Amino acid sequence: MIVVATTDFEVYHGVVNELRDRGTTFTTVEPDEELPEQATVVVTGADHTDDFADVTTIVADPDDPRRAVDQALAAVRGDSGRTVIGVDPGQRPGIAILAGETIVAAFQVPLGDAVDVIQREAAEAPSPVVRIGDGSRLESAKLVNELDTVTVELVDETGTTPYLGTGTRGMGDVLAAVNIARLEGEVVNAREIEPTEGEIQVIKDRSREQSEHNRAIDEVLARRVAAGELTVDEALLEHRNGGNSSSSESGETDHSGES
């Protein structure tokens, strides 16, 4: 059982609300009271770090109660609570955090923010693993190559996107990430992808859509975007500053759909 024992009101309020939101069984005691016999984990504040020698103690940050609750739940589950982070790659990857079979958090963020989110969630977990779907080749390669501080597995994501019924619009990527997290993959340290002509054209088209003047970046910049060296916005900035030359950089606006 999880026990909350602290005199820090902010810690108490944040942790208790988080536990209630998760439907978790817990109890609260004063720090100087005897713990219940079934207590296995104590969540407390920085003022009582060393007061509970016989049980696992989690010290909660009042600004981040979710992290303390994640740690407490993982401790209660023991070895079955290993943290697995599933990622459905794309321009806005779905990210699911699992402790054992339990989903403890989910996110969908722009590709440029995904690595920070994944590293943050993995930072305090014992032996975490990140499982990334092998679809969206360019985006998955970017994530694999930038996640160099955690074990990464590349997963065959065939069939991981579920059917979405009424009222579930926008949930597909996150649910796919959950399914990806539950599949074992091949451990990888890097993923080298040579972009196809079609993938390069998609990047050019995306740059045209984001450009203020309806102009696409050239192939050199598009390949740098494909390699993860630049975002589309950064490539457009280089394009405007004359970093590369191409027909699309002339003074004429190109409406043809081709660069």
Results as ranks from 00 to 15, higher is better:
residue 124 E to G: 00
residue 142 K to H: 14
residue 105 A to R: 14
residue 107 F to V: 07
residue 22 R to K: 10
residue 59 V to I: 14
residue 79 D to L: 01
residue 201 Q to I: 07
residue 200 I to N: 03
residue 66 R to Y: 11
residue 231 T to D: 01
residue 195 P to Y: 07
residue 116 D to Y: 09
residue 197 E to H: 07
residue 103 I to N: 08
residue 148 D to W: 06
residue 127 S to M: 04
residue 62 P to C: 13
residue 191 R to P: 01
residue 162 P to D: 07
residue 151 T to A: 14
residue 53 A to P: 08
residue 166 T to A: 13
residue 256 S to C: 08
residue 49 T to F: 07
residue 237 L to Y: 12
residue 6 T to K: 14
residue 121 E to I: 06
residue 248 S to I: 03
residue 156 D to H: 04
residue 23 G to P: 06
residue 153 E to N: 11
residue 37 E to Y: 07
residue 118 I to L: 01
residue 120 R to H: 13
residue 180 I to D: 02
residue 63 D to G: 13
residue 94 G to E: 00
residue 97 I to K: 04
residue 156 D to W: 02
residue 128 P to E: 12
residue 192 E to R: 14
residue 167 G to S: 01
residue 40 T to Q: 15
residue 244 N to I: 06
residue 250 S to Y: 09
residue 144 V to Q: 06
residue 112 G to N: 06
residue 20 R to S: 04
residue 31 P to T: 02
residue 77 R to D: 13
residue 170 G to A: 05
residue 114 A to H: 02
residue 28 T to E: 11
residue 50 D to V: 06
residue 83 T to I: 04
residue 77 R to E: 14
residue 68 A to K: 01
residue 257 G to Q: 06
residue 142 K to S: 12
residue 97 I to A: 07
residue 112 G to T: 11
residue 37 E to H: 04
residue 94 G to N: 00
residue 80 S to M: 09
residue 131 R to Q: 07
residue 73 L to E: 14
residue 239 H to D: 11
residue 145 N to K: 04
residue 129 V to M: 06
residue 116 D to K: 13
residue 76 V to Y: 03
residue 73 L to V: 13
residue 190 A to N: 09
residue 81 G to T: 02
residue 232 V to R: 06
residue 149 T to F: 11
residue 94 G to H: 00
residue 240 R to K: 02
residue 258 E to K: 15
residue 220 V to Y: 10
residue 91 Q to P: 08
residue 76 V to T: 13
residue 130 V to S: 05
residue 56 T to N: 10
residue 139 E to K: 00
residue 119 Q to D: 15
residue 64 D to F: 04
residue 46 A to N: 10
residue 155 V to I: 00
residue 246 S to A: 05
residue 143 L to T: 03
residue 109 V to S: 05
residue 111 L to M: 00
residue 235 A to K: 01
residue 249 E to R: 09
residue 222 A to V: 03
residue 212 E to D: 14
residue 92 R to M: 11
residue 74 A to Y: 05
residue 39 A to Q: 01
residue 149 T to S: 14
residue 251 G to W: 11
residue 258 E to R: 15
residue 243 G to K: 04
residue 106 A to G: 12
residue 179 N to S: 10
residue 211 S to F: 07
residue 25 T to H: 10
residue 10 E to R: 15
residue 185 G to L: 08
residue 161 T to H: 15
residue 103 I to W: 00
residue 168 T to C: 01
residue 129 V to T: 15
residue 226 A to W: 11
